[in-house]
Simulated scan of single mutants.
Amino acid sequence: MDVYDNNTFNGNDDFPRKILSQLLGSNGPVHAVTYSASPGTYILTGSADRSIRLYNPIPASPSSSTTTTTTLSTSFITKPSQAPSTTPPQGRLIQTYTSHGYEVLSLSVSSSNATFASSGGDRAVFLWDVSTATTIRRFSNQGHTTGRINSVIFAGVDDSLLISGGHDTTVRIWDVRSQSSSRPVQVLGDAKDGITSLAVSPGGAEVLAGSVDGRVRTYDVRMGRLVTDVFPGAVTSLCLARDGKTVLVGSLDSKIRLMDRSNGQCLRTYGGDGNANGDAAGGWTNKEIRVQSVLGGGERWVVAGDENGAENSNGEGRVWAWDLLTGKLVAKLGVPWGPGGGKVVVGRDGKEKERKNVVSCVAWKDGGFGNQFCVGGTSGVVTVYGEA
């Protein structure tokens, strides 16, 4: 397969940094990306245009047009030549799902791949049939009372439960199988500010909820026990390791932390400029918006988007990757806008400026154990990375 050459960090050469394809069609920023359940053949995206799209990221035929490789001005990255290289081919749009009245913010796919759930700005959780593109259930009665629902995730035996968390500070648990009631089976209302992210432990006994109040609350729903961990900034992202023993926590102090769940100890911190010099200029930044971080490559790497664009003047986005064990920077990749390039906007000073491609959502194939990942953000284009 032809690939689009990207910037290469001098170090870990097996990190998948080649752009395999781009997924087009959204008419606004992409807020959510996720792969289908194992083996992760397809990608779902949720957009500000109120639509959900299902793609096959493998193009039908490679593009033969050309573009110029991007160059990031840091000493950590080799500077490729400006010779033309292959433009990223387009992935294949399979289906579009439309029922949301507001932006789509979160997606979760069932283990059978027959259904998926979505949530967003309309205070409702939707359960979808993949093949017919219709909604099976809409969980809204006795639901979240105000604001948007930032996160939704399947849980329970055979994905019999849906868990949602939103701006109203509550976590709500819904029974997917029950047709007689639209009320949640349980409401967890301990947070003092909005819920931004959710995770469920292996086996489904524990629910983790990250909040703007700087807490990660772990609920043992069987024992009725609550454990609270405190962080310096609003929590924006949660990613559990497959064995459930550690969790990756992103927060608005521009740090990502790997936490030992047994004792609450911070095992490693990621962020800054990636070489232990702290928050240097041009370093990884997460201070204002929800930026997702995930485990990838068989849990060898920590991968995150960036609310700032690349250091060049093209308005491109960035993806950062660190070695899980050492915390050292493995890769820093430019994320192109896609067809048409960056968009010019008029600032408060009346001058034109190029809008940044803020990369806010990330998903790794096969729950972090595949050979591919994808990112989305303000450009409305989802970029798929993989091995050459």
Results as ranks from 00 to 15, higher is better:
residue 4 Y to A: 07
residue 5 D to F: 11
residue 18 K to W: 15
residue 23 L to A: 11
residue 30 V to M: 10
residue 35 Y to G: 01
residue 39 P to K: 07
residue 41 T to G: 03
residue 45 T to K: 00
residue 46 G to S: 10
residue 50 R to H: 12
residue 52 I to W: 08
residue 53 R to Q: 07
residue 58 I to L: 05
residue 64 S to H: 05
residue 65 S to R: 10
residue 73 S to D: 12
residue 74 T to C: 08
residue 78 T to Q: 11
residue 90 Q to L: 04
residue 94 I to H: 06
residue 97 Y to I: 04
residue 98 T to C: 04
residue 104 V to E: 02
residue 105 L to D: 10
residue 106 S to E: 09
residue 107 L to S: 08
residue 113 N to A: 06
residue 114 A to G: 10
residue 116 F to D: 02
residue 120 G to V: 05
residue 132 T to Y: 10
residue 133 A to D: 12
residue 133 A to L: 02
residue 133 A to G: 04
residue 137 R to W: 02
residue 139 F to M: 06
residue 143 G to D: 06
residue 146 T to H: 11
residue 147 G to V: 02
residue 147 G to L: 07
residue 154 F to L: 05
residue 156 G to K: 09
residue 160 S to F: 06
residue 166 G to Q: 11
residue 169 T to S: 11
residue 173 I to T: 13
residue 177 R to W: 13
residue 177 R to Q: 13
residue 178 S to E: 14
residue 179 Q to N: 13
residue 179 Q to V: 00
residue 186 Q to M: 11
residue 196 T to F: 03
residue 197 S to G: 07
residue 198 L to G: 08
residue 203 G to I: 12
residue 204 G to V: 05
residue 206 E to N: 15
residue 207 V to G: 06
residue 210 G to Y: 08
residue 210 G to A: 04
residue 215 R to I: 07
residue 225 R to K: 14
residue 228 T to P: 03
residue 228 T to A: 00
residue 229 D to C: 01
residue 230 V to I: 09
residue 230 V to C: 05
residue 230 V to L: 10
residue 234 A to S: 15
residue 240 L to V: 01
residue 244 G to K: 06
residue 247 V to D: 01
residue 258 L to H: 14
residue 262 S to P: 06
residue 268 R to K: 15
residue 268 R to M: 15
residue 272 G to T: 01
residue 272 G to M: 00
residue 280 A to E: 14
residue 281 A to W: 05
residue 282 G to E: 00
residue 285 T to Q: 14
residue 287 K to W: 05
residue 287 K to G: 13
residue 290 R to N: 15
residue 298 G to Q: 04
residue 298 G to A: 01
residue 300 R to P: 07
residue 306 D to R: 05
residue 313 S to G: 08
residue 318 R to V: 15
residue 320 W to V: 09
residue 320 W to L: 03
residue 326 T to N: 06
residue 335 V to W: 02
residue 339 P to S: 04
residue 341 G to R: 06
residue 343 K to F: 00
residue 346 V to K: 15
residue 351 K to N: 11
residue 351 K to I: 01
residue 352 E to F: 00
residue 360 S to V: 08
residue 360 S to D: 12
residue 363 A to S: 13
residue 367 G to V: 05
residue 368 G to N: 07
residue 371 N to W: 08
residue 371 N to C: 04
residue 374 C to K: 12
